[in-house]
Amino acid sequence: MRSILPVLTVVAALLALWYAAVVPMNIKAALTDAERAGMTVQPEGAAARRDLSAIQLVLDNPSVISATFQQARPRLPAPHQVVVELWNTTAGQKVTSKRSLIYHGWVTLSATLLGFAIGTIAGGLLAVGIVHNRAMDMSVMPWAIASQTIPILAIAPMIIVVLNSIGVQGLLPKAIISAYLSFFPVVVGMVKGLRSPEAGQLDLLKTYHASAGQSLWKLRLPASLPYLFASLKVAIAAALVGAIIGELPTGAVSGLGARLLAGSYYGQTVQIWAALFGAAIAAAGLVGLVGWIERLVLTRMGMAK
């Protein structure tokens, strides 16, 4: 609780910095517009202004500063422009409309969640196998760890196009990329968690004559939950990035990634920023949701800190 004031201060400072940066970033375009509208600006002519520094131009033309916050296609949109765009594309549109950010967000989110589910289940199963089979542990685990150092995201365009060419379209290709990205964190975290019971606890189960299955259900799985949730938070954020990147290569028409790409093609900067903040809100929401479930489960199990 005592960090609320500092956090708010930092956020306010970032916003102030953003507003301050908007003026020099947009000043050249704003001056060109003002000149076309018949105002006199210093110096005249876009060619004369090209080599001057942005700060110099701002100081020479203080009357144009307010216009830098209202550009239609600014180099850097002001925060309130992004908020207005976010509001217009969420609350201002029907949810089914192609202009609604909620519609695009849901397209990305459904792929993320499907991929996350596939990746988590597959990762959990592999982790159980690794813990119970020594040969599997020795052969698979080094590769699972090494694969985390590889830029897996580079494979995304290929997966999309190849699956497209054999007739798999829509949700599934993106979900596969998400699954792939969330798979390895889950494997590594789960293996760590399944191994976390102490030797004494495992020995105790052995004296009870418990089978491997019983010690898995009654000791290893419950003990692994804190580790599992820690990796799930990493995995779901990675899954969202995977789904967004998965929308880039085919020039998808819907989804947050498609909004980013379309915005970058047509210079619609406000749309890019709105999509970016939409993605950020989605990521924060997903991580927050996993964190909430974590607290709920761990409290119920008496493991919460």
């Binding site: 005592r2 960090s3 004031l5 500092p6 956090v7 708010l8 201060t9 930092v10 956020v11 970032l14 995201l153 938070k233 954020a237 969202l240 990035v241 967004i244 990147i245 947050l256 980013l260 999509a275 970016l276 993605a279 950020a280 990521a283 924060a284 991580v287």
Partner: peptide
């Protein structure tokens, strides 16, 4: 430090590649 740490870890979890 108390202000920047939560904001920083929040930003680190976002899809910054966007």
């Amino acid at each position: 430090r108390r202000g920047l740490l939560p904001v920083g870890s929040f930003l680190a979890a976002l899809p910054i590649v966007g």
